[in-house]
Simulated assay, not measured.
Amino acid sequence: MTVLDQRALNRATLARQMLLDRADLPVADAVAHLCGLQAQEPQEPYVGLWSRLRAFDPAVLSDLLVRRRLVRTHLMRRTVHLLAADDVLAWRTRHDAMLRQRVLGVYRGEFDGVDLDELAAAAREVLADGEPRTNAEIVSVLAARWPDPDRRALGEIVLALVPTVQAPPRGLWRTTAGVRTVALARWLGSDADPAGPDGDDPPGRALVRRYLAAFGPAASADLRAWCGLAGLPAAVAAVRDELVAFRDARGRTLLDLPGAPRPDPDTPAPIRFLPAFDNAVLGYHDRSRIIDDAHRNLSVAGARFVLVDGRVAATWTVDEGVVVVTPLRAFTRAERTAAAEEGAALASFLSEGENHRVRVAAG
Results as ranks from 00 to 15, higher is better:
residue 256 D to F: 05
residue 119 L to G: 04
residue 332 T to V: 06
residue 329 R to P: 00
residue 107 Y to S: 12
residue 158 V to P: 01
residue 159 L to S: 07
residue 57 D to G: 15
residue 198 D to N: 12
residue 145 R to H: 08
residue 333 R to Q: 06
residue 174 R to M: 15
residue 64 L to A: 06
residue 192 A to Q: 08
residue 304 R to D: 05
residue 170 R to L: 04
residue 71 V to Y: 01
residue 146 W to T: 05
residue 318 V to D: 03
residue 114 V to M: 01
residue 219 A to Q: 02
residue 294 A to W: 08
residue 200 D to I: 10
residue 20 L to V: 07
residue 327 P to H: 08
residue 328 L to H: 04
residue 291 I to E: 01
residue 119 L to M: 05
residue 351 S to H: 05
residue 69 R to S: 06
residue 281 V to K: 07
residue 132 P to W: 12
residue 64 L to H: 01
residue 315 T to E: 02
residue 253 T to W: 12
residue 182 V to S: 04
residue 176 T to W: 07
residue 192 A to V: 15
residue 71 V to G: 04
residue 62 S to H: 03
residue 111 F to E: 11
residue 359 R to E: 15
residue 352 E to C: 14
residue 143 A to L: 12
residue 49 L to V: 11
residue 232 L to T: 11
residue 118 E to T: 09
residue 326 T to E: 14
residue 149 P to M: 11
residue 25 L to Y: 03
residue 141 V to W: 12
residue 7 R to M: 05
residue 273 F to V: 14
residue 30 A to P: 12
residue 10 N to Q: 15
residue 208 V to D: 00
residue 197 P to L: 14
residue 163 P to Q: 02
residue 43 Q to F: 14
residue 244 V to Y: 12
residue 3 V to I: 11
residue 132 P to G: 11
residue 348 S to M: 12
residue 112 D to N: 09
residue 21 D to F: 00
residue 226 W to T: 09
residue 193 D to P: 02
residue 344 A to R: 15
residue 124 R to Y: 11
residue 31 V to H: 00
residue 178 G to K: 04
residue 82 L to S: 03
residue 317 T to V: 08
residue 58 P to R: 13
residue 222 D to A: 01
residue 3 V to N: 07
residue 156 E to S: 08
residue 290 I to Y: 02
